[in-house]
Design a protein around this nucleic acid. Structure first.
Lengths: 166, 166
DNA sequence: ACTTTATGTCAGCCTTGTTGACTTTCCAAG
DNA sequence: CTTGGAAAGTCAACAAGGCTGACATAAAGT
């Protein structure tokens, strides 16, 4: 990337519109690749991306409430409920009444749900792993820095709420 | 990131599932931020993301044919046509019969279309610029390396077909 | 003349998002 | 104990934007 040393020691970027547009299109095309493998698997099972997202976050944080999941996903409860209902009906997700507050529904994956989650995330991790290996460790660090800086503060909060594996 | 030097001089990454999952969620949350600003603007104008994508690529490559645009966007002609028709009716896009091959329709933005494109891309570039500045030049290079490695070969082809501003 | 390509269009379907209205359950404060 | 409000679920209706299939037209190529 074109950059020039600044007087203070840090570097200043030449952020031309062309460079920024390149970054924008990189996001667009890469996101397509990012979802391509799970999409294929989901189609075989008769599910969509919305199901993937639900299953992913339930797996990440077993026992989370519907409200929490709504907040993370950023959709309406009606929209989520449609997805959640089919997952529960199909026996992938279990909805347990909260022990302390019995209005809450604590969401868990069943064995069947965990199996689908594994299938989906293995495919997605496979591509991510390949991209990481191809780009190298320094690139990976930069990748995550830029993505984090691109998030809305609310989203960043959800992102950071996890234990970090690296 | 955790990495260990290998015997050959290159580095081997510890690609734990946790690290990969973090990268996956970074993509998910960042993509939401990435589309948030244009989405707001589009809504004011009564358009959707599909219109944004069409306008973006027509602006990038004025005079491109419908078939080319279909290939870049990766949707069906029926789907694109619906979007393209409203853009032409609203006077944002002009469809000119090809001079050499008169079956082709060459797509161009009108002044009005270019104005919307500018409004959208300025918002999106604004966020991208802020993220780039926050992360620094080295991070930006890594960001693009990982994204490129994540694309499908076909998508990579479209991505690379452009002149690179950096 | 015939085939193929590029484009457009109609009809219908699905997923996944939305809003609005309403109910049930249940915790917690008065 | 009653009541307010939060959590959850449900029904209806709608829109955007994907998809398939079928078909029409114009123009290019063989």
């Amino acid at each position: 990337m074109a950059d020039i040393p600044a007087t203070g020691g840090e570097t200043l970027l030449f952020l031309t519109d062309e460079q920024l547009r390149k970054g924008i299109e990189a996001m667009f095309f890469a996101y397509r690749g990012f979802t391509a493998d799970p999409d294929r698997i989901l189609e075989e099972h008769g599910y969509g991306r919305a199901h993937h997202r639900a299953v992913h976050f339930i797996n990440r944080q077993p026992g989370l409430t519907v409200t929490t999941l709504l907040d993370v996903l950023g959709v309406t409860k009606q929209s989520l409920n449609r997805v959640l209902r089919t997952l529960i009906e199909d026996g992938l997700v279990e909805s347990r009444v909260g022990t302390k507050d019995r209005r809450e529904r604590r969401l868990h994956l069943t064995d069947k749900g965990a199996a689908l989650e594994r299938e989906l995330s293995e495919a997605q991790r496979g591509r991510m792993r390949a991209a990481y290996r191809a780009a190298g460790p320094q690139a990976v660090a930069g990748f995550r820095q830029v993505l984090e800086a691109m998030m809305d503060p609310q989203q960043l909060r959800h992102y950071q709420s996890m234990r970090d594996g690296g």
